[in-house]
């Protein structure tokens, strides 16, 4: 009898914890981090066979185009490919080998589209559940921050200085250990769209400012307030101020 009460309560709490979007976003992001590695490995395996057919082609086209060319095999109209094939160095594949190549190329293309879909789904989820955070930090960076911190509630308890250095833990602890004055200024925020093409000095200042705004945005998301207009005004004001 007593056990039933405990069971009910824990099942309820488990459901509540697991229906949290954080964990799903993190799981999806983990997949998108790992898939490119596998894609590259498969691509290398493909190139072991097709390097003799299309030598030096991989330098001219990307992975996706390469796979499409492999799918079509010798029946392409692409000038570069025809040039390479007709140069006399290229080797013709046997029938069975062609099938292997086609299968590999197909699976690589499938994985690439899958990766894009998963990424889109993760971004969609993040934007739906945390609009302020994604607006200020950018969805990509927001997702990466979630992966590092583990959950939104943990992020909301962080001071802005910690948020500023998320992703630069290695450099931070190295500077602390050696006691040097060269502490890192930005972690994940280095890739933020506002920081690109800025001076080094300005980058440090802006990342400090942005981290503060992100901390505010996270707290707004947790309490369910939409502050996007206000934050936008603040950020624009700051950028105009630093440029002049």
């Amino acid at each position: 009898m007593e056990k039933e009460l405990f069971l009910e309560k824990t099942v309820e709490e488990i459901k509540r914890e697991l229906s949290n979007p954080d964990q799903r976003i993190i799981a999806l992001c983990r997949i998108t981090e790992k898939l490119p590695k596998n894609i590259n490995e498969l691509f290398e395996a493909l190139r072991v066979v097709t390097d003799t057919v299309y030598p030096t082609l991989e330098k001219e086209v990307g992975i996706e185009d390469y796979c499409r060319i492999c799918l079509a095999l010798q029946e392409t109209n692409n000038e570069k490919v025809l040039q390479i094939i007709n140069s006399g160095v290229s080797v013709k594949l046997e029938k069975r080998e062609k099938e292997f190549v086609k299968g590999l190329a197909e699976s690589i293309l499938g994985l690439i589209t899958l990766n894009k879909d998963i990424e889109k789904e993760a971004y969609h989820l993040a934007e739906k559940s945390y609009p302020n955070f994604c607006f200020v930090a950018g969805t990509n960076i927001a997702c990466k921050m979630l992966v590092i911190s583990g959950s939104m509630s943990r992020l909301s308890q962080m001071p802005s200085s910690t948020i500023q250095l998320l992703g630069a833990e290695k450099a931070l602890f190295k500077s602390i250990r050696t006691g040097s004055k060269k502490t890192p200024r930005y972690g994940l925020l280095f890739n933020h769209s506002l920081l690109i093409n800025k001076d080094k000095k300005e980058k440090g200042r802006l990342s400090r400012f942005l981290a503060g705004k992100i901390a505010i945005a996270i707290k707004a998301d947790i309490s369910g307030i939409d502050m996007r207009d206000e934050l936008k005004k603040n950020i624009e004001k700051k950028i105009n101020g630093t440029l002049n």
Binding site: E2, K3, F6, L7, K9, T10, E13, I14, E17
Partner: peptide
């Protein structure tokens, strides 16, 4: 197992 009680 009847004598295990889960507590989250």
């Amino acid at each position: 197992r009847a004598n295990l009680v889960p507590v989250l």
